[in-house]
Simulated assay, not measured.
Amino acid sequence: MSADKVFHSRSQGIPSEGVKDQYADGKAARVWKKYIGDSNQRTQNYKNFLTGLLKKHNCVKVLDAACGTGIDSMMLVDEGFKVVSVDASDKMLKHALKARWEKRKDHKYDEWIIEEASWETLPEDIQSFLPGATFDAVICLGNSFAHLLDEFEDQRTQKMCLRNFAKVLKPGGLLFIDHRNYDAMINSGATPGHSIYYNCSYPVDIKTSVLVVRGKPELVALDYLIHTNEDAELNEQSMFRLCYYPHELDKFTSMLDEAFDNKAEHSIYADFKALDQVENPAYYIHVMRKPLN
């Protein structure tokens, strides 16, 4: 960052060159796992929304492109989908690999593939361990894509990664991708407080900071304080910072359309409901359907 962009964008212990892996110290990953809970704690609305659309469109083979600790992947495996899970964070993947090992007696988990991969080289990375593979659906949910910051100030890397998601989809395949309501954060300086993904059993406070450079919002930092005082394992590391690129709804919608050459069906939901049903959503969820030809 240049001198006019000095900002502490990471939790203590995370290397400055590793902004793409903000869980690199391993401690934040453990706290995050507690925050999101397990697959049985996913909100029913989320589960019904995702699995319902996947089944409606006859999707079988699903790429979880930001699998983290494997929570969503496990939910999909349990529902009978064939899942390939990738993440750029090896610290998060360790939790997913451990979860798969703990499920080794369940035959549904025998075909669950877990590999390290980068969005920037996603087609090539997938070819390295699954030559010729394409997917009925790709999911990148839980505000994961916003971890990718705008290093060149023209969003070229973000645009390239969205095109990579489109490339690994079969014709007619679905991309599920979301982002927090950054429009609201920019305008109010606060994060809409309700969660649509997690039923966390711990009290959580989120402090929101918006970095504006030359009149343009460039970074949102969320300081999570998770009150885990009764959990001896996590008591020392219950506070951490995650940084995001503040995707505004209109701009992100245009970027997605361009990634599919303006030919895909594009549906937008607010907290898994129609846009006009939610006044101040926590998340916007985009569902792209790749054209058949």
Rank of each mutant, 00 (worst) to 15 (best):
C243N: 10
V6K: 15
K263A: 13
D250L: 12
K33P: 09
A259E: 07
N280C: 14
A166I: 00
S238H: 14
S254M: 15
T43I: 03
Q277W: 08
V278I: 06
Y23L: 06
E248N: 13
D125C: 04
L256G: 07
D106R: 00
S89V: 02
Y109G: 03
H95I: 15
R180Y: 10
F7W: 13
S209F: 11
L174Q: 05
G172F: 00
G13A: 03
S89N: 01
S2R: 14
D223V: 11
Q158G: 07
P15I: 06
A28R: 12
N164H: 05
P192E: 01
M255R: 15
L54R: 02
E111L: 08
K33T: 13
I186G: 08
C67A: 03
D125R: 04
Y46I: 07
I36L: 01
L211D: 13
E102C: 07
L234H: 10
F135P: 08
I206W: 03
K82I: 10
D154Q: 04
V84Q: 07
A66L: 04
D4N: 10
A29K: 01
L292R: 12
Q44I: 13
I226A: 00
S128H: 14
S85N: 08
V210P: 07
N40A: 10
F7S: 15
I186Q: 02
R100I: 00
V60E: 12
S209W: 09
R241V: 09
T134F: 11
S9L: 11
G70C: 02
P171V: 01
N280S: 12
L219V: 08
M288E: 05
A99L: 08
K273P: 09
